[in-house]
Design a protein around this nucleic acid. Structure first.
Lengths: 335, 335
DNA sequence: CTGTTAGCGCGTTCAG
DNA sequence: CTGAACGCGCTAACAG
């Protein structure tokens, strides 16, 4: 609980000299530096960054707001953010919204109160206001993973539409004609884009989109389970299933197992987002994998560039490609 | 970027009055309150908690230092911490050490500089110094998941020894006589306790502990894979395998699959730490599950009790039980 | 190379 | 019920 003044007194110098030693700023002779360092060690001095930040007007802290860190996709994104921030000497505060705008806005408020230098936001919904609120406090934002139409902000995301298109094309090329899509919430761009890609692939193939085969729900296991049960009740039953994220895919697999249906024999399944190698013994889901770590890194680098003034004037829109990984769950060509 | 003074001026009151409105402290007449609130809204005023904390000497922030948030066990612990903290109006800063003492000590330093009110520490190694350092800054610590001998600090952990004992007994009761254990790093109490429980079960059953069947490594998939390969090279080959955590278990499963061995037909497998329902389609591992969420909650509640002075004088040592969940991987009785 | 002055934005203390 | 003065711990700006 020693302050900079205690150290200064002990070393027989002015507080600012201690500050220079601690921060490696300005000139300090070797001799005084040594004296100061001894005093610091003797007193067990730990600088108070609150006071530092209050004065310097920077906290070297970024905020990362996302839906749910327990989803391995977000865990990986967060690691990318953390690593990039850490390389630049920044800390990261992480907040889970569970897709709730209310939670999101609460967190934004708290974080701005904490004077974070920048915000990485995975928006719960496509609303402009939260972005504008952050910007009104002179704090830069990067929108991550999702698109907010008309937002004047940097964006880093993946090509959901394109990935969905390719996955659907894959099923079509294997001979499937009735394909259902189980997506996330309406109002979330990734959920909508994945349905859009699905539609484009079907339309291009000259097929009609059957509304009974298009589902919006949550990006959760429970929702995947329920939507799958509803799909299975449709006649004629589809032969292909496209899950809008990894949790929906797991929910679908359970529902299919409980209905005693085999994948891919009875139904072909493809999904968005791979599961990390650490978590699965035997990867067998065919997926459109997003470069989660890279997304986190890129977004953070962009934010840091804004902070340092190194970024170009115009807002950047970074779109990363997905990678289709074909495994067993999509099966072989049918009938 | 409006300050409390700007608001005061706009509302025609003193800054302290604004402070009273914002913090709901002291008396303010309805009329002035309304005027102040209008001014706050007009100016988009956001209080600066750095200044607040500097003055009040509390940040309402806790630190959580653990090995690796991408392990679902820790994700769940973190959720318990987050929820308990949030209920009490506290924020949590999370840091990953990857089991490195150097990283851990770096983070401790940063966190104390940030003036966190308390620390939840999953210690990378059984050293006293880090604990003492935190305490020297008048900051309370709760040691989480692991034991540090002689540490004068609250502790919340699970009964690793007991869980390991029961898992090993289970394998013994199924007729296995040669059982290998794949554990985490030496110097980490959970890794050592799990080996200790294994030893006790064998000894009690009148069996010798074959040193060739006891492995210390990392709590990682890679390590689990490698250790399993080494186990498989031992003659006579063991018929039972005890994995010291969930990642080691997954690594073991892969190694066994690559060696074209069936679980449980060729080898029975049991492990520590369950995988959350969200992540597995078909749980089949027999495990000693730890109440991860509960651990996080209890530890946080204890820390908060210390902060508020509500905790008893003496340091608490909370030990939670594990739950044995028998599934397919342990197989039926043999021989 | 070192020091002085001043003030970051807020809340505690004490006075009205 | 409201306000003035002061200082939390630190560093920017400006000397010397």
């Amino acid at each position: 609980m020693a302050t900079i003044r205690d150290v200064a007194k002990q070393a027989g110098v002015a507080p600012i000299t201690v500050s220079r030693v601690v921060n490696n700023s300005g000139y300090v002779s070797e001799k005084t530096r040594a004296r100061v360092e001894t005093a610091i060690a003797d007193l067990g001095y730990v600088p108070n960054v609150l006071a530092r930040s209050l004065r310097s007007r920077r906290t070297d802290t970024l905020a990362l707001i996302l839906s749910d860190i327990s989803n391995p996709f977000w865990t990986t994104v967060a690691r990318g953010v953390e690593d990039a921030a850490s390389d630049a000497g920044f800390n990261v505060i992480l907040c889970n919204t569970d897709e709730s705008e209310i939670e999101q806005d609460k967190y934004l408020h708290v974080l701005l109160q904490k004077q974070v230098d920048g915000v990485l936001l995975v928006p719960a919904r496509s609303a402009l206001e939260p972005i504008q609120f952050v910007q009104s406090q002179d704090t830069p934002v990067v929108v991550l993973d999702r698109l907010i139409p008309d937002a004047q902000a940097d964006t880093v995301r993946c090509d959901s539409e394109g990935g969905a298109y390719q996955l659907t094309r894959l099923l079509l090329s294997l001979g499937h004609r009735r394909i259902a899509v189980l997506s996330g919430p309406q109002g979330v761009s990734t959920a909508e884009d994945r349905v859009a890609g699905y539609r484009r692939a079907l339309t291009e193939a000259g097929l009609d989109v059957d509304p009974a085969l298009v589902y919006y729900g949550q990006f959760s296991l429970e929702s995947g389970y329920t939507m799958t049960q509803r799909v299975l009740a449709v006649t004629p039953r589809p032969s292909g299933l496209f899950a809008g994220n990894n949790f929906i895919a797991i929910g679908a697999l359970r529902a299919l197992r409980d209905a005693e249906l085999q994948v891919p024999e009875d139904l072909a399944l493809v999904g968005f987002d791979d599961l990390p190698a650490d978590l699965v013994v035997d990867p067998f889901l065919t997926v459109a994998a997003q470069p989660a770590y890279e997304m986190g890194r890129r977004a953070t680098e962009l934010l840091l560039a804004r902070l340092s003034g190194a970024a170009p004037e115009a807002y950047q829109e970074v779109m990363l490609p997905t990678e289709i990984i074909v495994r067993q769950s999509s099966g072989q060509a049918v009938g």
